[in-house]
Nucleic acid binder design. Structure first.
Length: 567
DNA sequence: CTGGTGCATGGGATG
DNA sequence: ATCCCATGCACCAGT
């Protein structure tokens, strides 16, 4: 960990020490090795990565300074009288001086094709002024053409922005020996309140590092070409998985999108992980947000923590898998271990409430809204993101995940990961197999092997190219068949239920054959598996023991599969 | 009859 | 004590 590797700069917001710290020359800041903290050499107060520091205010993307009045304005999760007003279609204006500022444009998180409905946020003040709003009071949003995105309660966050930063005395410096726990807590806190920011994208798109303009260092990472260097920095922390998603500026228009501190570009070698330290976070320190006065609020908000089991624990492989060969930046959001229900036939993936509310678009109606998700292979799926009331709360689910889960060969115990792919804000669903596949027969059916796909890829960039999207997430070109979505829905059900398999129709067969080569490869047993031939009623079955997919006591009958595929 | 949908329930996690 | 969420189940529509 070295601050010198950072191309960013940060500023100590101790009012006695407002000197800009440019890290590239490694001036002013030094890292407390092993303590995950940084000290300002000038005032000596430590900034501890992994927690909210009341003293230091990193040059985070979430913080902006009005170009006119220079007052810091957080137009993200923080709501205050000094909030920006988001202009349609995306500009923001300082509530203090009314000057129009950064144009969010495509930064609007849910304006991407991820969602079909992405009404622009008309006004930040409308959303922010009222502070946290329980969802029950939230207006109809995506389901109304005139709707506005609502803030998730947890992302509404009040901070006194007028004073810049609260100061803490040395006595209030964090006690680092116990950092580990706090680090986790703060991670979650920041994850939940969106104050942990990388903001690289923000910087890139806004060209504004988020600190006072006059304080912007020459080394501030408000240049796209510097992103890579930033990303490189966060590649050495093995605790990457604990990296905190955070809100980026573009996710502030009513959405609490989350951007992990460990944004990374897979084009950059080797993907190592970092967590501690602003540099370790892969954050340009200038990109990090440390919320002033955050401690008490964070503590309070900490009660809204995302449960640790949902913290993204992405591995390099995960990220590589998701990002592929692109230059995309992955923002791990959260992950969830599939339950039996999730991986079952119902096709409903229960989403952790906090995750759903934090990272998915707000929904006011139980019908929810379609959610476009890209899997690790680049295939697009449409899930219905919805909820139903449950004990004065909500239960969020993704409907229609069965085909995707089967495509990924997931079963109970495996982990699905949700990330955001930048640029574009695509929601990416990855997967990670359980270390030891639990013996589970409940979802044995429909296993088609690695990567088998029973849908035809379409150019989802062209909305006209996919006209049939059923609730099972199936996306099909209309040209492929004249059957209704209901038919496809039924088809997908077949994939789930073996009882339905015999009812597969010709169209289904056609589409299945399209990917038969894939299926063959997937059905092929592992090299170390030796088939035993069993003759049943004159038919030869190649029998393999397939522990991975079917459990130790289950067997995969190739012939059955062949019959299924009409071979 | 089967499968999908919506909701309820209860165990477990969390505060 | 409260909340989350995995799961069960009743109802309904389609076949």
């Amino acid at each position: 960990m070295s601050t010198s590797s950072s191309s960013s700069s940060k500023i100590c917001y101790n009012s006695d020490c407002t000197e800009l710290k440019s890290e590239r020359p490694r001036k002013g800041w030094r890292l407390r090795t092993g303590e995950f903290a940084e000290l300002c050499d000038r005032c000596g107060i430590a900034y501890e990565e992994g927690r909210f520091c009341d003293t230091f205010h990193l040059n985070a993307a979430g913080w902006r300074n009005c170009e006119s009045c220079r007052k810091p304005v957080h137009c993200g999760c923080i709501v205050s009288a000094h909030a920006f007003t988001l202009l349609d279609p995306g500009g923001i204006e300082c509530a203090a001086c009314a000057r129009k500022n950064v144009v969010l444009g495509q930064n609007v998180p849910w304006s991407t094709p991820l969602f079909f409905h992405s009404p622009p946020v008309k006004s930040w003040s409308q959303l922010a002024g009222s502070g946290p709003v329980p969802w029950r009071q939230a207006p109809t949003l995506f389901n109304s053409s005139a709707s506005q995105p609502e803030f998730h309660p947890r992302v509404s966050y009040e901070v006194d922005l007028s004073t810049g930063i609260d100061r803490i005395g040395a006595s209030e410096r964090p006690s680092f020996p116990s950092l580990e726990k706090r680090k986790i807590e703060s991670f979650s806190e920041r994850l939940m309140n969106g104050s942990l920011k990388l903001g690289t994208r923000d910087i890139l798109e806004n060209g504004h590092p988020g600190i006072n303009g006059e304080e912007q260092p020459s080394s501030c990472s408000n240049k796209p070409q510097q992103q890579s260097s930033l990303l490189k920095q966060d590649q050495s922390n093995p605790q990457f998985g604990l990296a905190a998603p955070h809100t980026s500026q573009d996710e502030t228009n009513g959405q609490q999108g989350v951007t992990n501190t460990h944004l990374r570009s897979v084009t950059q070698p080797p993907l190592t992980k970092q967590f501690h330290g602003s540099q370790q976070n892969g954050l340009d320190s200038s990109n990090e947000t440390q919320v002033r006065n955050g401690r008490s609020r964070q503590e309070a908000r900490g009660r809204n923590l995302l449960y640790p089991r949902y913290w993204p624990r992405f591995t390099d492989q995960d990220l590589q898998q998701i990002s592929g060969d692109s230059n995309s930046v992955i923002t791990p959001l959260f992950e969830k271990t599939l339950s039996a229900s999730d991986a079952g036939r119902i096709g409903r993936l229960v989403l952790p409430k906090k995750c759903a509310e934090a990272y998915f678009p707000p929904i006011s109606l139980a019908e929810g809204l379609p959610l476009k998700v890209q899997d690790a292979k680049g295939k697009e799926w449409i899930f219905q993101f919805r909820f139903w009331p449950n004990n004065n709360s909500r239960m969020y689910v993704l409907e229609g995940v069965t085909p995707c889960i089967q495509n990924m060969q997931l079963q109970a115990g495996d982990v699905v990961t949700f990330s955001r792919l930048e640029p574009g804000g695509k929601l990416v669903m990855g997967c990670r197999k359980a270390p030891t596949a639990p013996a589970s027969d409940q979802d044995n059916e429909g296993k088609t092997g690695n990567g088998v796909s029973v849908h035809v890829d379409v150019d989802l960039a062209d909305p006209t190219s996919w006209s049939k999207v059923d609730k099972s997430g199936y996306i099909a070109k209309e040209a492929l068949g004249s059957k209704s979505a209901i038919s496809r829905k039924r088809k997908n059900s077949m994939l789930v239920s073996k009882n339905k398999r015999i009812r597969i129709d010709n169209e289904d067969l056609i589409e299945l054959k399209i990917t038969w080569e894939e299926a063959q490869g997937l059905l092929r047993p592992p090299p170390n598996n030796v088939a035993s031939v069993v003759v049943i009623e004159g038919f030869e079955f190649e029998e393999y023991e397939v522990q991975r997919f079917l459990g130790p006591s289950s067997y995969c009958f190739m012939f059955t599969c062949l019959c299924f595929f009409n071979f």
